[in-house]
Lab assay of single mutants.
Amino acid sequence: GPMASDKRPRTAFTAEQLQRLKAEFQTNRYLTEQRRQSLAQELGLNESQIKIWFQNKRAK
């Protein structure tokens, strides 16, 4: 629909990254900035991508 703007492409996470994020989520529903930074480095992701993933996951 018209609401779907092309400005922010959805990140396609790899299965491996998703597995890691899910495991982290089961341990911590809320990430500290430090955890998020190390996860971002570990997974080669953007911190904001991880932050948003957690927000979306909590919203469900």
Rank of each mutant, 00 (worst) to 15 (best):
G1W: 07
G1E: 14
P2C: 09
P2L: 08
P2E: 13
P2I: 11
P2T: 11
P2K: 03
M3L: 12
A4F: 09
A4Y: 11
A4V: 10
S5F: 02
S5E: 12
S5Y: 02
S5D: 14
S5K: 04
S5N: 10
S5I: 06
D6E: 13
K7E: 15
K7T: 15
K7G: 13
R8V: 10
R8A: 09
P9D: 06
P9V: 04
P9T: 03
P9C: 12
R10F: 15
R10S: 15
R10V: 15
R10M: 15
R10D: 15
T11F: 14
T11K: 15
T11E: 15
A12M: 07
A12H: 15
A12L: 12
A12T: 12
F13T: 02
F13D: 01
F13M: 06
F13A: 02
F13N: 01
T14K: 05
T14A: 02
T14N: 07
T14M: 02
T14E: 02
T14Y: 02
T14L: 03
A15P: 13
A15G: 07
A15K: 15
A15W: 10
E16K: 14
E16T: 13
E16L: 14
E16P: 03
E16H: 11
Q17L: 04
Q17F: 01
Q17E: 02
Q17H: 04
Q17R: 02
L18Y: 09
L18V: 10
L18S: 04
L18W: 05
L18C: 05
L18P: 00
Q19C: 07
Q19P: 01
Q19T: 12
Q19G: 09
Q19F: 11
R20W: 03
R20H: 04
R20F: 04
R20K: 09
R20Q: 06
R20L: 05
R20M: 06
L21C: 02
L21H: 00
L21T: 00
L21R: 00
L21Q: 00
K22Q: 08
K22S: 06
K22T: 10
K22A: 09
A23L: 09
A23D: 12
A23V: 09
A23Q: 15
E24D: 02
E24T: 03
E24P: 00
E24S: 03
F25K: 02
F25R: 02
F25P: 00
F25I: 02
F25L: 03
Q26T: 07
Q26Y: 09
Q26W: 04
Q26D: 08
Q26K: 14
Q26R: 12
T27A: 12
T27W: 08
T27P: 01
N28K: 05
N28Q: 06
N28Y: 04
N28H: 09
N28C: 09
R29A: 11
R29H: 08
R29D: 05
Y30L: 06
Y30Q: 08
Y30V: 07
Y30C: 06
Y30R: 05
Y30S: 06
Y30A: 04
Y30H: 05
Y30K: 08
L31K: 01
L31W: 03
L31V: 07
L31C: 06
T32C: 07
T32N: 13
T32L: 03
T32H: 05
T32D: 12
E33F: 11
E33K: 12
E33V: 11
E33T: 13
E33W: 06
Q34I: 12
Q34R: 09
Q34S: 15
Q34T: 11
Q34H: 13
Q34P: 06
Q34F: 09
R35H: 08
R35Y: 09
R35V: 07
R36A: 13
R36F: 05
Q37V: 09
Q37Y: 14
Q37R: 14
Q37I: 12
Q37F: 10
S38D: 11
S38L: 14
S38M: 14
S38R: 07
S38A: 12
L39D: 00
L39W: 01
L39T: 00
L39N: 00
L39Q: 00
L39C: 01
A40N: 01
A40F: 01
A40Q: 03
Q41G: 07
Q41D: 12
Q41W: 09
Q41R: 11
Q41K: 08
Q41T: 09
Q41P: 01
Q41F: 09
E42H: 04
E42V: 04
E42A: 05
E42D: 09
L43Y: 02
L43C: 05
L43G: 00
L43F: 04
L43M: 06
L43K: 00
L43N: 01
G44A: 07
G44H: 09
G44I: 03
G44L: 05
G44F: 05
L45K: 03
L45S: 03
L45Y: 01
L45I: 06
L45Q: 02
N46A: 13
N46C: 09
N46Q: 15
N46L: 12
N46G: 09
N46I: 08
E47I: 09
E47Y: 03
E47K: 04
E47H: 04
E47M: 04
S48D: 07
S48C: 10
S48G: 10
S48T: 13
S48L: 10
Q49I: 13
Q49V: 14
Q49G: 04
Q49K: 09
I50L: 10
I50D: 00
I50A: 01
I50S: 01
I50M: 02
K51L: 10
K51G: 07
K51E: 07
K51H: 14
K51V: 11
K51P: 01
I52P: 01
I52W: 14
I52Y: 07
I52T: 14
I52C: 06
I52F: 05
I52G: 06
I52L: 11
W53P: 00
W53G: 00
W53N: 00
W53I: 02
W53S: 00
F54I: 02
F54T: 01
F54G: 01
Q55Y: 14
Q55K: 15
Q55T: 07
N56G: 05
N56L: 14
N56D: 06
K57G: 05
K57I: 05
K57R: 14
K57N: 08
K57D: 02
K57C: 06
K57L: 06
R58H: 05
R58M: 07
R58T: 08
R58Y: 05
A59N: 13
A59D: 10
A59H: 14
A59R: 15
A59E: 07
A59W: 14
K60C: 07
K60R: 08
K60F: 03
K60S: 09
K60H: 11
K60M: 10
K60P: 05
K60I: 08
